[in-house]
Design a protein around this nucleic acid. Sequence first.
DNA 1: ATGAAAGCGCTAACAT
DNA 2: ATGTTAGCGCTTTCAT
Lengths: 368, 368
Amino acid sequence: MPGSSAGGDTAGERGPRTRRGRPTIKQIAEVAGVSRGTVDRALNNRGDVNESVAARIRTIANELGYSPHRAAKALRLNHDPVEIAVILPRTSSDFFSQIERGVADGAGAFEDMGIHTHVRWFDPSREDAFIRTLEEAVADGCAGIALTGPQTPGAVASVRTAVESGLPVVTTNSDLPSSGRMAFVGQDLYQSGVVAAELMGKMTRRAIRPARLIALTGNLTFQAHRDRIDGFAAGIGRWMDGTTVEVVEGQDRYDGTLSALEAIDPEGVVGAYAATGSIRALLEVRERWPEPKSVRVITNDDLPIVREGLLDGRIDFTILQDASAQGSEPVRLLAEHLLSGTRPANEWVRTPVIIAGATLLEVPPPEA
Amino acid sequence: MPGSSAGGDTAGERGPRTRRGRPTIKQIAEVAGVSRGTVDRALNNRGDVNESVAARIRTIANELGYSPHRAAKALRLNHDPVEIAVILPRTSSDFFSQIERGVADGAGAFEDMGIHTHVRWFDPSREDAFIRTLEEAVADGCAGIALTGPQTPGAVASVRTAVESGLPVVTTNSDLPSSGRMAFVGQDLYQSGVVAAELMGKMTRRAIRPARLIALTGNLTFQAHRDRIDGFAAGIGRWMDGTTVEVVEGQDRYDGTLSALEAIDPEGVVGAYAATGSIRALLEVRERWPEPKSVRVITNDDLPIVREGLLDGRIDFTILQDASAQGSEPVRLLAEHLLSGTRPANEWVRTPVIIAGATLLEVPPPEA
DNA sequence: ATGAAAGCGCTAACAT
DNA sequence: ATGTTAGCGCTTTCAT
């Protein structure tokens, strides 16, 4: 049986080139003429190893194409398990609970690998809650962090501090670009706007031209709000002639949205895209327009008001993010990094832009 | 050191309830007063163990809530690795190459777990090619099988034989329901038809009633073809009044589709849904209708002709399956089963119904 | 039928 | 600075 594993004797011989399968630390040690312990220290920068020896070891490891064996590392980790901290804002919508379920999904695969996951919530309305939570996680000795943090200089700075102390950090849902994080997992908001535009365009094609479209958002000074609107405008420009897009800023509040929309002349409006903002206000105002039924509505996310609107036909489609992936992917990336030292090929791991209509309602809400 | 693992002494003491972390085989052995080897044999039905002892061991394992440690099992598997066979039809479209890429993705996570994956292709036009490929895989000693097979009694029978010999089998993309397979990974075709109907309905809303819709398919005697059409008809019934759906069977061939469509009176046709069948024929016939531009078109899958049509506007939307998931999920399910003995909670693992428009084209084709 | 021991690859504690 | 050893949980000879 030439396939059998040949564990025992062989005293080193067994043919010169019989490098069996994946190279191991033991093999590197043999080639370098040092002990396994030294190889381990060299390859993992644990210090206490002569630099020239370390360099030689690294060279050999490279030539052999060494990469650590995840199962072995995992089994060893089981010794004293390690924690991945997940830091999320406690918002009123349940979007982040969906992400939390994704986290649990992703974490399951690594429980037995000695990698545990711990979700820590912070109150986004309190100034430094995020920073404190982050510092707590670091102080508790976590081995990696996935987070959704506020876009403030303070937050960026503390993430940077964590990164510089050697911790792998992955942002999810919204990014902190200059924080040094290893990766960002989230949707391309511009693209989601383009998709909304294509839907809107193809739904309103038979309308009389020139036609008008409303794009509702919170506040264009926020880049994230801008992106969807920009994508929508660009998409409409590409898909339709004789159609104008009017942007309405509602500051994400019900009354602000209401008054801003009431100021609009409904004549010729064939559709409204709620990038962000009060969907309830939009639906109410639309009801008072002369021909509500002929105004198509596209929203974002899977909120109760959206399901309600999809059900009774006031909303046509909603654009979703893959919340589950935004929970599981960061955990996966961090765990893989801890086990094999790998980094994602792209810093930005895009989650899909999902078009959902009323058929969404036939599927039970997230995770049934 | 109360934390240290206490291999030797302790003679049972160390405080009565100090069951550290997850129960291990060693613990079960201690409690049962037998050796680890015996526990292993009992728990894995390897024979050579007194039935009464085995029963007691199983009871204890249950009480302790034992489940095997995946990292440890993986490390051991590394000893003599194990193979998952993936059996796919070699068709002309590249749909199954997309699945193949998904397989590679899924397999990556288990390479280091001593679980390798090997894709075997068969020629779907040859009568018993599938069965032969399956038997080869079994003869080669694979430890689990993911497959897409033909819906023939012979195929079902040989899958059943493999299952009965103790091999875990997962079907993907299309199911073999009564084959005894552990799970099926694939789309809900009926639901995909409903989604197509919702899109079609919302795109043609402003058309004059009564309006007519064409639903193109291959052959209604195939359940898979039927499902999409049924979903489409049901969805149209739900979303639109005064609209009729006419089913056209094109036998999935270009000329058959062409002549069947040419027999149709185009008057009042506002949309066409190509569930299956020759999309090229549909687009050609539509071009000769009096008002091509006012006939909305929805197709399935991501084929070259579909991309072409989306780009120049002859096709509005296409409904996709998540090919990548149909490759990676079966592998994941089988690998998890081999490592921890788990089975999926649901026999049917549904892959999402994805609505894609021209924006799809901005994203590079599968796996760039 | 059962027990004992070795080993998968890696790492931390303990020598030297 | 480097080597040695034990052990993570499981399986598999090889004894008994």
